[in-house]
């Protein structure tokens, strides 16, 4: 479904992503894990077109999307929940969700209903300004907003960041729910344990390079990963 081939991304002179290739197949949950600054977010930004790779290509459903402008990608079925949520703080919850459906002709009631079913909290607070929501609610809003356009591939960047353990569990169970209704998911996480537990496959990044890959289970049991990321 999504194929990144030989990506190299620079921030000025800093070589942030080095020869990265990976793939997400239809119906999978794939995780990119790694420490802070390993380049996980940079990869997602490159797929979304906010950053450009100097080499290689990104293909999505057999279409080369390496040079498509970011705002046109949503129409291809690719939705990105950025790190730090980035909800529109001064707009209401409902308006945020409407923005998620900006690429559609109009807001589909069924999409809205689905978001409210997944996140009942958002329905309760639909007329509230997003800036007054708690961190967890903002994460739910960011995710709800991203699925308003019926994406085929959902990219989640650190969805559990800064949330309490209960909320982290909730967010991960929602990711599983989204996956079970047929959304393919590319997940970036620092919480490697949780991420590997729900992933079909995962890639491990270290200073801009993919150093390891395998199924979620394999990686979760690998000694190296345990030592480096799982605290044991």
């Amino acid at each position: 479904m999504l194929k990144a081939d030989d990506l190299n991304v620079y921030y000025g002179k800093i070589h942030a992503i080095k020869n990265v290739s990976f793939e997400v197949k239809n119906g999978e949950i794939v995780s990119l894990i790694g420490a802070n600054g390993a380049g996980k977010t940079t990869i997602l930004h490159t797929i979304s077109g906010l950053l450009r790779s100097t080499t290689g290509s990104i293909t999505f459903e057999d279409k080369n999307i390496s040079h498509i402008e970011p705002h046109k990608l949503v129409r291809h079925g690719l939705s990105h929940v950025p790190e730090g949520r980035h909800v529109f703080l001064q707009m209401t919850v409902l308006e945020n969700l409407e923005m998620g459906a900006y690429s559609m002709k109009k807001v589909s009631p069924s999409a809205l209903k689905r978001v409210y079913e997944l996140f009942p909290r958002l329905e309760e607070r639909k007329n509230q300004i997003a800036g007054t929501l708690s961190g967890g609610e903002q994460q739910m809003l960011a995710m709800g907003r991203a699925i308003m356009c019926h994406p085929k591939l959902l990219m989640l960047d650190e969805p559990s960041m800064g949330l309490s353990p209960i909320l982290v569990d909730q967010i991960f169970s929602i990711i599983k729910d989204l996956h079970s209704v047929g959304t393919t998911i590319l997940l970036v996480e620092q919480n490697a344990g949780k991420a590997l537990a729900i992933s079909d496959r995962a890639y491990v990044l270290e200073s801009g390079r993919i150093v390891l890959s395998g199924t979620g289970k394999e990686l979760a049991e690998s000694e190296e990963i345990k030592k480096a990321y799982l605290g044991g």
Binding site: H71, V74, S79, P82, H86, M99, Y102
Partner: peptide, 24 residues
């Protein structure tokens, strides 16, 4: 209006607006 709301979205966060499919 949809365009008016898109304007507010752009005013708050250009990158996020782009990810929503808004032509900034």
């Amino acid at each position: 209006t949809k365009l008016g709301k898109a304007m507010r979205a752009v005013s708050e966060d250009k990158d996020a607006a782009m990810l929503m499919g808004i032509n900034v």
